[in-house]
Amino acid sequence: MNPAVELKNIEKRFGKTEIIRGVSLDVRAGERHAVIGPNGAGKSTLFNLVSGRLVPSAGSILLRGENITGLRPFEINRRGLSRSFQVTNIFPRLSVWENVRCAVLWSKGYKYSFWRNVDKLEDVRARTQEILDQINMADRAEIPAGVLTYAEQRALEIGITIAGGADIILLDEPTAGMSRSETERAVALIRKVSEGRTLIIIEHDMGVVFDLADRISVLVYGQIIATDEPPKIKANQKVQEAYLGAAGHD
């Protein structure tokens, strides 16, 4: 069986600066895979490459065996890969309901239809409601997304990401800036929504990472120095030196 996502010798340069320096990685179908590493290691850049926001300078990216290198973000999304953003990236003046519904429409096959009444699409309505229930925001449906609290916006961000039913989900620091209790709720939500899917997650909170991940990749200065199960990562000498030793106590 093909890996869900496969990176082959990915490189990314901005001018002369090399951010990603030859990354190869297999993410197995159905696993929860965390990417950790110090600030500036290139984690978000890696996500941008996989999701099509950036095009790699060299190397190729395969989605379930299909080469998706150089495809536009919406083309990759239609192939079943969806991502969230580190900096909340929603539709601020649309209601929470509209936010989620926008993310549902394509997956239900309505494309650019300008002849169907969107409010009468029962499958879209049901799916939108289901997502709102999952992220516990059914009672906030009519509120403009821009006025939600930070934690609510983060939850909505996840809701938009999963709404299209993608089976590969990329979450970029979903708990950043959250309090302890908010983080716990967010982790429970992530666990729930990634059930039966492939999850790739960037996370700084080591508690969350070791709690959630089946496997962990450690990215340091644009290279993956180790990919393994959590206990083995913890014990890995190279990881300890390069990363956990310095940043593991925060």
């Binding site: 973000p73 990236n89 929603i90 003046r93 650019y112 169907r116």
Partner: peptide, 24 residues
């Protein structure tokens, strides 16, 4: 009030995010 009309609003609000929910 159609799917297209709603995506127009989404493009107005945040064209980048639209790309990541499957629309061009």
């Amino acid at each position: 009030r159609t799917p297209f009309g709603r995506m127009c609003n989404a493009v107005r609000e945040n064209p980048e995010r639209v790309e990541f929910v499957g629309y061009n």
